[in-house]
């Protein structure tokens, strides 16, 4: 599938921001000082910025408001509605927290629940597609939720450090380790989830498979088209190994090392740890799209 930069930025940044909303809503972060401001502003900024980036994928962004209407059937619509609800609720909670120094606990819990639901809905946009086994046969929702949780926790700790508050390294280490485990789980399932893993092949696609071996003799057009650009994307696959290495090192090993050093050298190390983690997750998210195979490519002779 075509790895559109707008969608990669959207899923990574909104996941990070909503993860921060989740943890701050549950009560993480100090109750006084500048750290509260950093947490609230960064959480809302990442989530809203990520949400806005998704509009970059639309051919007609002026009609994006219509995406709030079909929540009964469409995961994309649910995601849009939940995002607004989560950020609205968190905005109220953050106002009381930053301006008044009071946490309205029920509001915080509702914001945390909505943030979780939003990340789940984002993942389901992809996980619902039977046409892309690499997304639908793998633990995609679990992966998106784990990444949002770990990134959000690192975001809260980095924002706390920026605000001069103490950093709790232990839970970040735990979250990174758990998320690395979920990432390996996803990767293990994805390794066997090619285009043919739901039983489709060029024979079932054409219905001609029972007559003999089928191959494409002549494609319908000599140039490229929307279908090939969008759903038969193959550019850069040969760099998959290097990108996965970046994902492992920048996304997990470097943040783990920096988080271990933070209690010794200073909480500010959580900031480069977060930057490194986000860069690593971006590399993995690029591969999430670029390596996914669509069954439609059978009609173009791809196996």
């Amino acid at each position: 599938m075509h790895p559109a930069p707008s969608i990669i930025v959207f899923t990574v940044l909104s996941g990070l921001g909503l993860g921060m909303v989740f943890w701050a809503g549950l009560g993480l972060g100090p109750d006084h000082g500048a750290a509260r401001w950093w947490i609230a502003v960064l959480a809302l900024g990442f989530a809203a910025g990520g949400g806005a980036a998704s509009a970059g994928h639309l051919a007609r962004p002026d009609r994006a408001w219509r995406a709030f209407s079909q929540w009964r059937s469409s995961w994309l619509s649910r995601e849009a509605c939940l995002m607004v609800a989560a950020l609205g609720t968190f905005g109220m909670y953050a106002a009381g927290w930053t301006l008044g120094g009071v946490r309205f606990w029920p509001v915080g819990w509702i914001a945390a629940g909505l943030a979780l639901a939003t990340v789940y809905a984002t993942a389901m946009i992809y996980a619902q597609l039977r046409t892309v086994p690499r997304w639908s046969l793998t633990p995609t929702p679990q992966t998106f939720l784990a990444f949002a949780g770990a990134g959000g926790l690192m975001g809260v700790e980095a924002a706390s450090a920026l605000g001069g508050a103490d950093v709790s390294a232990g839970r970040v280490l735990l979250a990174l380790a758990l998320t690395a485990g979920v990432a390996v789980w996803w990767q293990t399932e994805a390794a066997g989830a090619g285009r043919r893993s739901t039983g489709s092949d060029i024979g079932t696609a054409t219905g001609l498979g029972r007559l003999g071996r089928v191959r494409l003799f002549e494609p319908p057009h000599t140039g490229s088209n929307y279908l090939l650009d969008e759903m038969a994307y193959r550019v850069g696959r040969r760099r998959a190994y290097q990108l996965r290495l970046i994902g492992a090192v920048a996304g997990f090993l470097v943040p783990l090392a920096l988080t271990l050093l933070a209690p010794l050298l200073g909480g500010w190390l959580m900031v480069p740890a977060l930057v490194s983690h986000v860069a690593g997750v971006m590399a993995l998210r690029w591969l999430f799209f670029a390596e996914a195979e669509h069954v439609q490519a059978f009609y173009y002779g791809m196996r």
Partner: peptide, 26 residues
Amino acid sequence: DHCMGCGLCAWACPYGARELDRAEGV
């Protein structure tokens, strides 16, 4: 008049039956 050109329906179709018009964006 309502399509915002997100392309998700083309991703959901197994047959490649939907194409986003690159001039009109629908």
